[in-house]
Simulated scan of single mutants.
Amino acid sequence: MSAVRTLWDRLALYLPVLLMGVLAMATYWLVRSTPERSGPEPTAAAVHEPDYFMRKFAVKTYTANGQLKSDVRGGEARHFPDTDTLEIDQVRIRSFNEQGRLTTATANKAITNGDASEVQLIGNAQVIRAAVTDDQGQAQPSLTFNGEFLHAFMNTEQVKSHKPVELTRGKDRFTADSMDFDNLERVMLLRGRVRGKLVPGNTH
């Protein structure tokens, strides 16, 4: 009995060491058996799909003091959340800048940002800035732009196009292969085949 007791005492002495060894081997085996991660999960690519539609609609926006800023109408509109843009069929836009000057835009199709301050007009595109009286009290005739593509910046009164355009200012008329017009800076850049007709005394 004394020999058995002595053997048991020695086993009890080494039992914690044996258990630690078993646990270490088990941990090592689990680490080796676990499949490696191939990296972070890929995020889903943004999809350019509309989240809502509007048909035969009219949307108006106002300034902080309640003045009408823009009036957008169309046959159908599709909003794309990934770009926060509207695609509008048979569009008509009326926009007023800070001085209350009216600019009207129409086209077969338009792509606008959230507040319609930037508009790409596609197909039978036309932008008209109404006749105004400038800060010096001088009458400024209306401006009309026509083309298959016009990029209008309503607040800054800029109109650009990389395609052929026609510009009419009162009775003056210009055509060009492309255009960059800034009404506030009174700068018009026409490129390509440029033709123009100036009428003396043109004020309306």
Rank of each mutant, 00 (worst) to 15 (best):
M1E: 11
S2R: 14
V4F: 00
R5Y: 04
L7T: 15
W8E: 13
R10Q: 14
A12F: 00
P16L: 03
L18C: 12
L19Q: 06
L23F: 09
A24F: 03
A26P: 02
W29T: 12
W29N: 07
V31H: 08
T34E: 05
T34K: 06
S38L: 13
S38D: 08
G39C: 06
P40E: 02
P40H: 01
E41D: 12
P42A: 04
P42S: 02
A45C: 06
A46D: 09
A46E: 12
V47Y: 04
V47R: 13
V47W: 00
H48G: 12
E49P: 07
P50Q: 06
D51S: 11
Y52V: 11
F53N: 15
F57L: 08
V59C: 01
K60M: 03
T61S: 14
Y62H: 11
T63A: 01
A64H: 08
L68N: 11
K69I: 02
R73N: 14
E76S: 14
A77T: 11
R78L: 11
T83R: 09
L86P: 07
E87D: 10
I88V: 11
Q99M: 05
T104Q: 09
T106G: 03
T106H: 02
A107D: 00
A110P: 05
G114Q: 09
D115V: 14
E118C: 02
E118V: 09
V119C: 09
L121E: 01
L121I: 00
N124T: 12
Q126R: 14
V127T: 08
I128F: 01
R129G: 08
A130V: 04
A131E: 05
A131Q: 05
T133R: 05
T133F: 00
D134A: 02
D135Q: 09
Q138A: 14
A139C: 04
A139M: 06
Q140K: 10
S142E: 12
T144D: 01
F149G: 13
L150Q: 05
H151T: 14
F153A: 10
M154E: 03
N155S: 10
E157V: 06
Q158S: 08
Q158D: 05
V159T: 12
S161G: 06
S161P: 07
S161Y: 00
H162T: 15
V165L: 05
E166M: 14
L167K: 07
T168Q: 15
R169D: 08
G170C: 03
K171R: 14
F174R: 12
A176F: 01
M179P: 02
F181Y: 11
D182P: 03
D182G: 07
D182W: 00
L184N: 13
L184A: 06
R186K: 05
V187P: 03
M188D: 01
L189K: 10
L189E: 09
G196D: 04
K197T: 13
L198E: 01
V199M: 05
P200W: 00
G201Q: 02
H204F: 01
